[in-house]
Design a protein around this nucleic acid. Structure first.
Lengths: 195, 195
DNA sequence: AAAGTATGTAACCTATCGGTAACAAGCAAG
DNA sequence: CTTGCTTGTTACCGATAGGTTACATACTTT
């Protein structure tokens, strides 16, 4: 660093966190790794962010990592279509974003305040949708929550797994064609359930 | 070690791997950790097993970690009951075994020959069952595979997650009652699908 | 211009990692 | 008994982790 610009330095550090997260995951975010990836002395990481945990908290905050997509149920013809659209977008999000996959993976091995916060927000968003679907469809809320859990749970699992494994139950979880098949199954399920 | 007994020493080492896996996971299995947990010099780990990877391969081999439960479909009244029983047992297995959960978690971040071998065997076992169900029920095999993927995928995810998170979509994934609810949803699904 | 403060780097500290070399003690075969 | 092999421990090595101290350089304020 030749220029003295704290804002730029902080951004460099946060950007370095981003690239490490996307390529190696949150587990690999350490002081030394961030320092060398950003080209900044590690002292500044402590000075400006306090600790790696606080740095990661800031990164999560900046990157809006909870389910923030809006789903106005009124805009859809019926509950079935609405449900399909929600899960389609869930799959897209997770398949497109390496950082989000790494976050979900990290959460399986870690518990800390930042993660707890994300989980709360996610939980609220999810339960709002589940409530709306239950009300409009007349289905028991536990069943709606259960179906939703089966789908989002397996999608999360498969998206993480796909980074290290190409096939699961003969589905090519690395390719669009495999996910098309799964989407067809989800649609099939909803056709059977919402009659 | 005062007595000189290679067999006993090897068992001590493998047992130490087991306890580390169950408590901290495969990621924590290192030479130093195993040496101190087993009370054996780490030189012997290299001498008797070659490397940590080979030690872990041996551990996996000894512990029969692929889906080995037999499910004779003929013994069940109908396909629906059979399917429910299969997934019930899948959930039980994963909820009862910390080591299995840690293995599934490890697989999400790792790829190596030992894991690839497990995956192949699992894939074969799963596809055998899926084939049998498809044949007997007349359902399209891709749909059966899809449903199976949704269930096992989410169950795997939730069982891993439950070690760090108590609630998912309002389901208490830490308690029997939460899993009872999910089982009810699975049963509900099968009732709708297999009419 | 001088003093004080914000920004930066280099060097060092301790702990721990995987891995090896050197050596001690027991056992078995001649 | 002695030679040789197996089993074991201690002590060390280089690399890297997180974390801190000391110091240099620039900008601001008076």
């Amino acid at each position: 660093m030749t220029t003295k610009d704290r804002n730029q330095t902080e951004r460099r550090i946060l950007d370095a966190v981003g690239t490490i997260v996307e390529t190696e995951g949150f587990e690999a975010v350490g002081v030394n790794a961030v320092a060398s990836a950003s080209g900044v002395s590690k002292v500044l990481i402590y000075r400006y962010f306090g600790s790696i945990e606080q740095l990661l908290a800031k990164y999560l905050e900046d990157n809006d990592f909870w389910l923030n997509t809006e789903f106005p149920i009124q805009q859809y013809n019926n509950v079935k279509e609405f449900s399909k659209a929600v899960f389609r977008s869930y799959i897209d999000m997770l398949r497109k974003s390496p950082a989000l996959r790494k976050l979900y993976r990290w959460e399986l091995t870690t518990d800390n305040p930042a993660i707890a916060g994300l989980r709360e927000r996610r939980e609220r968003t999810a339960m709002d949708i589940i409530n709306a679907v239950s009300r409009q469809s007349g289905q028991d809320i536990d069943q709606v929550a259960g179906i939703s859990t089966l789908i989002t749970g397996s999608v999360s699992y498969l998206c993480i797994l796909a980074e290290n494994c190409a096939v699961y139950n003969s589905l090519e979880i690395n390719s669009d064609s495999g996910w098309e098949k799964l989407l067809k199954t989800i649609d099939f399920m909803f056709d059977k359930i919402f009659d």
